[in-house]
Amino acid sequence: MRWTIAAFLLGFALTCWADDAGQIKTASGTAFVERDGQRLPARVGMPVRQSDTLITGADGAAGVTFTDNSLLSIGPNSVLAIDSYTFDSTTHRGQFDSSLRKGTLAVISGKLVKQSPDAMRVRTPSSIMGVRGTEFVVRVEEPGN
């Protein structure tokens, strides 16, 4: 087991994702990454950075693998902001904050949460979630929907 972890660590050190929080791994339908006021079509392999916002249309969905192995995906008509992301691949410490403004989100937490519970927080307009290592889904609906 120990060598597997060591290998993963080395793997992260070797990847060229150093400045990136993660990478888009799945994208379908209308899906964008909003960065510095620009909307870039979400494509598989595209980096995701802190302060990016992921946006999907009625037919859209997208999934991101983060450098700590957290996996996040959003379904149709969704807006997810990556508020802040830091991950130290040596100590596994850092902080991951994101906000689901609307739509649906699925999360599989990664090494950040394994290292320190409370390293990951997900907000909605009305809630804040503390994540202690798990898989979960979130939906934000407008009233009347």
Binding site: R132, V138, E141
Partner: peptide
């Protein structure tokens, strides 16, 4: 807005914890 949060078991059947405030 109305939000719903659901925790899911992982493939090994274990369920973690999410605290919703």
């Amino acid at each position: 807005t109305v939000d719903t949060v659901v925790v899911l078991p992982d493939p090994q059947g274990r369920t973690g914890t999410v605290v919703v405030q």
